[in-house]
Design a protein around this nucleic acid. Structure first.
Lengths: 205, 205
DNA sequence: ACCTGAACACCGTTCAAGT
DNA sequence: ACCTGAACACCGTTCAAGT
């Protein structure tokens, strides 16, 4: 058949990425396949290997779109006070997980095969996310050195991530329902209360 | 061929579970397959469907063994003071993730297909894990009602989980190395410091 | 009754061959 | 140059048929 130049390489990439997101949003991450993506955009599976290195490469590009949306939502909170900003950002993290659980799972629960390295253009987005948190932590406690802020930001955000992961997977509802929003609020309130206080004293135990 | 009664049904189950754990420990969760398990114990793939409902059922049984080991390790810490017990339990959680990353991943990153219900005999083990944490939280703050302890235990342990997940996936090493043990210590120290104090005042914001 | 062997309906990936 | 079609080496699962 060979439908020449009906779409440019860039268009094919965009089409494929959109197809991935549509399939995953509807059917879930485990139902995604190269063959389905190809069928969705009217091409052959083999074509996709002309525009992407492999399925994981395609998934990473689809995840970048989701990640950019999350970053935008989180950036909107930077005008608030540090504590409010962090609470709002955590809320946005959980909100995305609830609104688009499948796309969220594709981003945050996708593993590279045998711990292969994530490309730099993708890592840069994950880094931006941590930097947003770090900035607010630094505002909260100007006395702390960069290493302490670095550690605390990663501690707090990994914790937010953990709560969101278990919430999306419904692994928290066992033995009594829980309110994930209340969990995030409790985490951030208590962690920051002690951390900001100790940072004045220079104690970082 | 049909090798009759060479192994009992119970023996076949034990053999298959051990094979799953051996294959995953060596090659990682994504390299596991029904066919490999069967070959590993000298049987045909079809046989496994006589002793297990499906691959996920078999995985759940393999995970139960890992989970029981973790529970034992965590239970050894119950003699310590509440804060020390929680620090030690979190350390055991991370230690397992580091010693047996693949088996840890099989337990904590395995998703049931389309959010299918986890069987009761398995949920009971996850519950035991939370109860261990809850007991220590209750000891820390006798004044709090059960609901508050419930929420705080799940908040803290989901956070420990989040830190361990990102540590195992090496998603924390971007932009400067981090010490996961220091993160766990920071989390537990600061969360408990504020939570235990506020619980005396009856404030649970 | 216990287990096999072969099939069914899928996968990701590659690449010679067609236009 | 762009894309196909067919193959390769895998999957999980089922089930009639053999012992």
């Amino acid at each position: 058949m060979a439908r020449r130049n009906e779409h440019s390489k860039a268009q094919l990439r965009t089409l494929a990425i959109a197809a991935v997101r549509a399939i995953v949003a509807e059917q879930g991450p485990d139902k995604l396949s190269v063959r389905k993506v190809a069928e969705h955009i009217g091409y052959t599976p083999g074509m996709l290997y002309h525009v992407f290195a492999c399925l994981d490469d395609l998934i990473l590009h689809a995840n970048a779109v989701t990640l950019d949306g999350l970053l935008q939502r989180m950036q909107a909170a930077t005008a608030l006070s540090p504590a409010e900003a962090l609470q709002t950002m955590a809320g946005q993290y959980l909100a995305l997980a609830r609104e688009e659980p499948h796309l969220w799972q594709l981003v945050f629960m996708h593993r590279m095969p045998q711990a292969a390295a994530v490309p730099a253009w993708y890592q840069q987005r994950t880094l931006q996310l941590f930097v947003l948190v770090e900035d607010q932590m630094a505002r909260l406690s100007a006395q702390q050195d960069a290493a302490a802020v670095h550690l605390a930001a990663r501690t707090l955000w990994s914790s937010v991530h953990g709560i969101s992961v278990l919430a999306v997977e419904n692994k928290l509802s066992i033995a009594g329902d829980v309110d994930e929003t209340a969990m995030l609020q409790s985490l951030i309130h208590h962690y920051l209360a002690s951390w900001a206080r100790n940072s004045v004293n220079g104690d970082d135990a």
